[in-house]
Simulated scan of single mutants.
Amino acid sequence: MKFSRDHGLAERRTTATEAKAALLQAYKAAHAAADPEREARMAQRAIRAEERAKRHAERDRLKAEEEARAEQEAREREEAAIAAARAEQDAREQAEASRISRVVEDEAARKAERDRRYAARKARQK
């Protein structure tokens, strides 16, 4: 048996619009019914976000402290290395100065010995 009504374009359009409106109303009704739960979920979500922000801030603070401590240790190591290098340089300079003074003293002693021998030889010739 054939349908007695011919579903034309206008009728199909109205039926689709009514169906969409009914779906929208059902969604709004379900959304309104779930609203107290939604508020609780949103509050929980906000609390978790705040806790997460606190954890991130604490982690960033600890990271900054660790970096500052590492920089301080690096500076101290560098200063210690510089001090050790200075001490080594001073020791080298002191050793060089000591060696130079010994060479000068040895040279002076050699000249004094040579002068003494010369004076002794002159004294024997007279």
Score class of each variant (00 low, 15 high):
residue 60 D to I: 03
residue 5 R to M: 11
residue 59 R to I: 06
residue 23 L to Y: 09
residue 7 H to N: 08
residue 27 Y to G: 03
residue 102 R to C: 01
residue 3 F to S: 15
residue 17 T to E: 12
residue 85 A to T: 03
residue 64 A to D: 06
residue 84 A to N: 03
residue 104 V to Q: 12
residue 93 E to N: 13
residue 118 Y to S: 10
residue 84 A to L: 05
residue 56 H to V: 09
residue 13 R to C: 15
residue 28 K to P: 00
residue 46 A to I: 09
residue 113 E to P: 00
residue 65 E to W: 01
residue 70 A to I: 08
residue 125 Q to W: 04
residue 47 I to H: 07
residue 4 S to R: 14
residue 39 E to H: 13
residue 18 E to C: 05
residue 93 E to C: 12
residue 4 S to N: 14
residue 41 R to P: 00
residue 110 R to I: 01
residue 26 A to P: 02
residue 66 E to S: 10
residue 23 L to V: 12
residue 91 A to V: 10
residue 106 D to V: 02
residue 89 Q to H: 13
residue 73 E to M: 07
residue 15 T to S: 14
residue 114 R to M: 08
residue 49 A to E: 10
residue 2 K to D: 14
residue 65 E to F: 05
residue 72 Q to F: 00
residue 53 A to I: 04
residue 7 H to M: 13
residue 92 R to D: 12
residue 56 H to I: 08
residue 85 A to Y: 03
residue 118 Y to T: 12
residue 2 K to L: 13
residue 45 R to M: 13
residue 122 K to N: 11
residue 9 L to F: 14
residue 99 R to N: 11
residue 56 H to E: 14
residue 57 A to S: 06
residue 47 I to C: 05
residue 48 R to P: 00
residue 41 R to V: 06
residue 34 A to L: 15
residue 78 E to F: 00
residue 96 E to S: 14
residue 21 A to E: 06
residue 107 E to A: 12
residue 104 V to F: 05
residue 87 A to N: 06
residue 30 A to N: 11
residue 69 R to V: 01
residue 57 A to C: 02
residue 41 R to A: 11
residue 108 A to P: 04
residue 98 S to M: 13
residue 57 A to D: 05
residue 118 Y to P: 00
residue 31 H to D: 09
residue 125 Q to K: 12
residue 126 K to F: 08
residue 75 R to D: 06
residue 5 R to F: 10
residue 51 E to Y: 02
residue 1 M to I: 13
residue 69 R to E: 08
residue 124 R to G: 01
residue 117 R to K: 10
residue 13 R to F: 14
residue 80 A to Y: 00
residue 103 V to G: 03
residue 115 D to E: 15
residue 97 A to E: 14
residue 46 A to Q: 15
residue 10 A to S: 15
residue 66 E to R: 06
residue 92 R to C: 11
residue 35 D to R: 07
residue 62 L to I: 08
residue 15 T to P: 02
residue 119 A to I: 03
residue 48 R to G: 03
residue 124 R to A: 07
residue 53 A to Q: 06
residue 48 R to F: 02
residue 104 V to H: 09
residue 6 D to W: 11
residue 88 E to I: 08
residue 113 E to F: 03
residue 95 A to S: 12
